[in-house]
Structure formats: structure tokens, C-alpha cells
Amino acid sequence: MLARLQQAITLTLLGSAFAWAFWWAQQGRPLVAAAGALLIALGYALVLAIEFVILSRVHGDDPTPKASLRELVAAWWGEVTHSPVIFCWRQPFVPNAVPDRPEAAGRRGVVLIHGFVCNRGFWTPWMRRLRARGVPFVAVSLEPVFGSIDHYADLVEAAVRRLELGTGQAPVLVCHSMGGLAARAWLRREQADARVHRVITIGTPHRGTHLGRHGRTLNTRQMGLDSPWLQQLTAAEPPERYRRFTCFYSNCDNIVFPPAVASLPGAVNLHLPGWAHVHMVHHPQVFNEVLASVGAASTVAPGADRGADVAAR
């Protein structure tokens, strides 16, 4: 469902940009043609800019250091350059470019769980890198796209079982954004603490997010700040469960803010300053943390991606 929806959106935007450019070029207005086409194709960059303005304004008394203007601009640019590849190509057109690899006896595997309005295509670069290192993995696609987060527990259970059968090991769960809440919903339902080696979350709204208060779908409302659903989830969790979690969060996360809502008490909480919500997945420290958790060598250089110098501060 999501792939078809994003295909339609992508093709509509491209078609509209082309139609605008063609029409005004025919009218002898090349500047209007070019400006309008660019605005249609790159309007998402303006939406992202608005998100960064909002996150900066609602920081409040959050204990995380407030992002500087330089960090915000760099994070915005990282999101602008990475998002189209994911939402306009990998997810809508090639979500299954890399098949699951659940079998590798004796090797610990990884369950990859994406976030809101995403599918398994989100993890394509990760899947290629894991496959190259011989690390078994299963990537889920959470459906229905706009349903309850509780319903995703079935998909997480199926993925964990595939890796348990294929490896004989408890897997590591790697979760972006809403995917971390899906993992927590699965843990609550199955009481499956002994069946998971580690849970690594990246920009997960563990305590909700400011943007969630404007949600219209069931799962976005569940992700509102201190929503009733999140309160019930937290009340049902034993405090020691959080010791299995590593939570990456950022002061430039344009979706999950204020920043500390992406952390958990008792977890290993790691701040990645200057990195935006989607782009955070490409921080080398995140991938190296996963490799360490599955017992593989960390081979990503600290400066392998934009922002490593910022993150090191």
C-alpha cells in the first residue's frame, strides 16, 4: 500500500513540475517555467525548514544542549539531500531490492524495523552492508500504514522467529522512529525479554513528540507527547527492560522533539548533535553500535559521513 501511495505522489510531483515548465516555456517565460518547476519538485525542503524552526522554538527546558544555527542548517541540508532517495525511489519503486537473509547458523542476526510512512526499502543501504559482512537480517514492512502500533507486534514476532530459526540466537532489534515503539509493543505483548539480545532505537519518540499532537491517524496520535497509549505502555514495562536498550537521539531531530523524549531511563542514551531524523540512520556510530552488538567488526570510519565532526563535539 505505502509503495503504491509514494509512487503516485512521486509521479504526480514530477508530472506537475514538467507540465508547469512546458506550459510556461511555450509562453516564452523561461524563468517562470524554471522557478515553478523547482518549487514543485523541491517544496519539501521548505516544509523541512519549517520543522527545524519549530523544533528550535519548543526546546524549552529540555536538558539536551540546544542546537546552534550552524547545526540546524547542516542537519536541514542532510535531510534535504537524503529524504528524496528514500521516499521517492527506494521505498516506492525498489523496496525489495535486497532480500532478507535470515539463515546463518550460530551468527546473531538483526531485525530492522522502520518508522512512520516507511517500508523495508528504508534500510536498503544497511541490508547491503550487513549482507557484505555475513550478518543475518530480516527487514519488516509495517502494515497497515496508519493503523495502531499494537498491530505491528505480529510482524515483529514473525521476523524474530525467522531469525531464531535461522541462527539459533536471540536477535538485535534495530528500530528507527516509530519502529522502536513497535518493538516495545511486541516486548509487552510477548514478554519476550529473553528472546532479544539488544534493542537499538534511532530517533524513537519513547515519550512522544510535539508533532504528534497534530496527528490525524491512529498511530500518530499514539505518538503524541505523553499520550494515553504511551502512558499505558510505560506502566506495563518493568524498569529493568530498559537496560536492554541503546537509544540514539539528537538535538536536531526535526520529527521527534524535544530531544530527550527519544531517551529512556536506565538505557544507554547516546546523543548525536547536529543530525536530523532520517539522516541520523547514516551516522557511523549507529552502524558500528549494531555491529558491536552482533559481534561483528566495526569497520565504518568515524568520519565516513557528513557531520562526524559535529557529532564528535
Rank of each mutant, 00 (worst) to 15 (best):
T299M: 07
L31V: 14
F137A: 02
V261S: 12
Y152S: 05
A159P: 04
A262M: 07
W23E: 12
V196K: 03
S141N: 09
A105I: 04
H82F: 14
I255Q: 14
L272T: 11
Q232Y: 01
I86Y: 00
I202K: 00
P99T: 01
L291I: 09
G212R: 02
A75E: 01
G60S: 07
P136L: 08
G43N: 11
H176C: 04
I200N: 08
Q285V: 14
L163R: 04
V290A: 07
R101E: 12
R128A: 09
R195N: 10
K66P: 10
T299S: 12
A182T: 09
R108K: 14
A74L: 15
L211Q: 11
R184M: 10
D100S: 02
R161Q: 14
L55D: 06
L155R: 13
N96V: 00
A33F: 10
S83V: 12
G295I: 05
V58C: 02
W23V: 14
G115S: 04
S250K: 02
A104Y: 02
D253H: 01
E157D: 15
G307D: 08
C118H: 11
A308G: 13
R184N: 02
A312Q: 14
F22Q: 14
P30G: 05
E237H: 07
A159F: 05
A311G: 07
V174K: 09
P205W: 08
G212Q: 03
S56C: 04
V58M: 03
R213A: 15
A304G: 15
V300L: 13
V261H: 14
W77E: 10
G134Y: 14
A21H: 13
P63Y: 05
A45N: 04
A19Y: 09
P125L: 07
V174S: 06
L112W: 01
L46I: 15
R241N: 07
D62H: 10
L165C: 08
W89Q: 00
S141V: 03
A182I: 06
V199A: 05
R128F: 12
H151W: 12
I255H: 11
S148R: 15
P99H: 05
L165D: 15
W229N: 02
L48K: 00
Q222D: 10
L46E: 00
K66T: 08
R221D: 08
C175D: 05
P144V: 11
P65H: 07
H82A: 14
V111P: 03
